[in-house]
Structure formats: structure tokens, C-alpha cells
């Protein structure tokens, strides 16, 4: 029999901020501070900061492209962690969405050639997490779910 006990998170985080690039640094600091209770190693911490930076930067750069009123454009971060060291962070936007997620996740794939993007964001996120899920709907927005075990 499979043991599936629904455990409650030890702690949760909710945070919303406008799509301004100054908030990239802020979001990294917030998430790093949030998971610090789990006693992450230096490398776990820097992995997590990088992943958050990638996800949030994508919301800022891509999600609200062409939106006339950016003051109504937000990035949403939801975090939780569990007693076994599992950290789950959701980074969400209500922007244009991604038409083909599988394609977008390919290394070097970018729709933004003119701004020196490398197209490695998703690849970096994948290699620094245990699990990365991407939910997106055209015209509705995108949610990236980051899962990583810390301090084990």
C-alpha cells in the first residue's frame, strides 16, 4: 500500500510585486531568506537564487510584452517548505502565456533575439532543481513550479 499522507507545510510565503527589473534582486533575497530556516548549503542557496532569478526575469521580460499598462502587471510568488526539506516555489504571471512549452524549454530557444538573451533560462532552472513544472495557457499566463530538497 502506498503511503500518501498529506503533510502540512512548515511555513508558507505569498508575495506580489510589479514587473520591474529591480525586483529580480528582491525576489532572490526574499526566497533565500524564506528557505534559510532549512539550513541550506551555500550551493543550495545559490542554486535557488539563480532559479528564482530566471523565473522572475522571464515574467518581467516576456510575460507582459506588448501590454499597454504595465502598472497592472504583477509577478506572484508562492512558497512552501516541509519538514523533510522539500521546498516548493511557484512563480506566476498573468501574461501572454507560452504557446509551446516543450519548445520553450529547449536549450538555446528564445523569442527575444535582439536583447542578448541566451535561451538558457529553462535549462538552467532544470539543472538546479529536482523538479520543474511549467503550466501555461495562451493569453492567460504562466506558472513555473520549482521543487528542490534542501539540507539533506
Amino acid at each position: 500500500m502506498k503511503k500518501q499522507i498529506k503533510t502540512k507545510p512548515l511555513n508558507t510565503l505569498k508575495c506580489v510585486f510589479p514587473v520591474k527589473s529591480v525586483n529580480e534582486g528582491l525576489s532572490r533575497m526574499i526566497v533565500a531568506a524564506f528557505i534559510s530556516q532549512l539550513d541550506p548549503t551555500v550551493s543550495e542557496l545559490s542554486d535557488m537564487k539563480t532559479v528564482i532569478s530566471e523565473a522572475v526575469t522571464n515574467c518581467i521580460v516576456h510575460a507582459y510584452k506588448g501590454f499597454p499598462d504595465k502598472s497592472k502587471a504583477f509577478v506572484y510568488i508562492y512558497g512552501e517548505y516541509y519538514s523533510d526539506g522539500r521546498v516548493v516555489i511557484k512563480v506566476k504571471d498573468k501574461g501572454v502565456g507560452i504557446e509551446d512549452v516543450k519548445l520553450a524549454r529547449q536549450p538555446l530557444y528564445t523569442t527575444d533575439r535582439e536583447n542578448e538573451r541566451s535561451g538558457m533560462g529553462f535549462t538552467i532552472m532544470e539543472s538546479f532543481t529536482d523538479k520543474l513544472r511549467v503550466y501555461s495557457k495562451k493569453g492567460k499566463g504562466t506558472t513555473v513550479v520549482i521543487e528542490k530538497r534542501i539540507g539533506l
Binding site: R28, S46, T50, E54, N115, E116, S118, M120, G121, I124
Partner: peptide, 12 residues
């Protein structure tokens, strides 16, 4: 700290 923007910067 460096993310994919650093890659773009270096390649550019």
C-alpha cells in the same frame, strides 16, 4: 551572482 543574463552579456 550570475544567471542566464550573464551568458547573454558574455556572448554579446
Amino acid at each position: 551572482f550570475c544567471d542566464s543574463s550573464g551568458l547573454g552579456l558574455v556572448m554579446g
